[in-house]
Design a protein around this nucleic acid. Structure first.
Lengths: 148, 148
DNA sequence: TATTGTTATACTCTATAACTATA
DNA sequence: TATAGTTATAGAGTATAACAATA
C-alpha cells in the first residue's frame, strides 16, 4: 500500500488557483493540439466531447459550453457536414432537436482523447491511490463525479 | 491532523480523463463568465492571466497560449487600447517586444480571478492537507509547480 | 405568452502566407 | 540566412437582436 500524498508546505487558496490556472493552460494546449490533428477546432472538439456522454439538445449544449445558443447552430452544422453528428427531432417536444454522435463521431472523439499524451502520460504516472485521491478532490472542487 | 482522501473504488485512467474533462468544462465556464463580467473575451483574459506571472515576449505568449504568433498581435492590440497592457522594446534584441501588464491590467486580472466563485468556493471547501494533496497531484500530472 | 432553434450582423479568434526590421 | 513581430486574408467562434415554429 503506497502512501497518500503528504503536505510539504502550506498551500493557500490563491496559490492553488494560480497552479490550477497553469495546469488548465497545459490541459488546453494538449486538447487543442489533439483536436487540430483531426482537423477540428477546440470548440468543435469540445462539443464532441460533451456529446460523447450522450445526446443533448442544442440549448443544453449551449449551457454546458457556456456560450449563446446561436453559436451552437454553426458548430453543429460543420460537425454534421463532416458526418460526426446528426440532428434528431425530439419526440415529445418538436421544437427541440437532439444532437447525437455518429459512430464516426465517437471514433474521432476517442482518437482525440487518446492523442492527449501530455495529460494521459501525467495520469499514467500516478498510482492507484493517487488516482483515487485526485478523483475525490476533483469531485469536491468541481462537483464532477467519475462516470460509472 | 485530518485524514488524506482515501480510495473508495478503483479509478482507472480513462475515467479520470473523463472526470478531468468535465472539471475543465466547469473551470472554463467559470473563467468565461468572470471574463465577460469585465467585458473581456476568454482569450483576452487568458493573455492577462499569463502576463500576471510576469512580462513576456509576443512569441513566448503565443507558445504559452498554443496559438499562432500572428493572433497575439490583435489580442494585445485590443488590450493595449484599453490600457491593460503595454509593449516595450527589448533592450538586448530590438526585434523582441515585451508585453507588460499595467497597474489597471493587474487590477482587472485579479478581479476576474476573484469572480471565479465556483472554483474559489470549491477550493475553499478543502482542508489544508487536501489543498497540499491537490497541489502535489497537479504538479505530478501537469508539471506545474505552485508559485512561491 | 414563453421557449427552441435559426438567421443576420458585427466583432473577435484562428491559421496561413507574405512582409519588415532586426540579428 | 534566420528570427520577431506585423499585416492581409479567409474561415470559424461569439454575443445580440429578430424571426418562425411549437408549446
Amino acid at each position: 500500500m503506497t502512501e497518500a500524498p503528504r503536505a510539504q508546505a502550506p498551500v493557500d487558496t490563491d496559490r492553488l488557483m494560480e497552479q490550477l490556472s497553469m495546469s488548465w493552460g497545459v490541459y488546453l494546449g494538449d486538447f487543442t493540439v489533439a483536436a487540430a490533428s483531426e482537423n477540428l477546432t477546440a470548440s468543435q472538439a469540445k462539443a464532441l466531447t460533451v456529446l460523447r456522454r450522450g445526446p443533448a439538445a442544442m440549448r443544453a449544449l449551449a449551457e454546458t459550453m457556456t456560450c449563446d445558443a446561436s453559436n451552437i447552430t454553426g458548430i453543429i452544422d460543420r460537425l454534421e457536414k463532416r458526418g460526426l453528428v446528426r440532428r434528431e427531432a425530439d419526440v415529445s417536444d418538436r421544437r427541440v432537436k437532439n444532437v447525437i454522435l455518429t459512430t464516426e463521431g465517437e471514433r474521432v472523439t476517442d482518437a482525440i482523447r487518446a492523442k492527449m499524451r501530455t495529460t494521459q502520460d501525467g495520469l499514467d504516472g500516478l498510482g492507484a491511490e493517487e488516482r483515487a485521491s485526485l478523483s475525490l478532490l476533483l469531485e469536491r472542487v468541481f462537483g464532477c463525479r467519475p462516470t460509472t
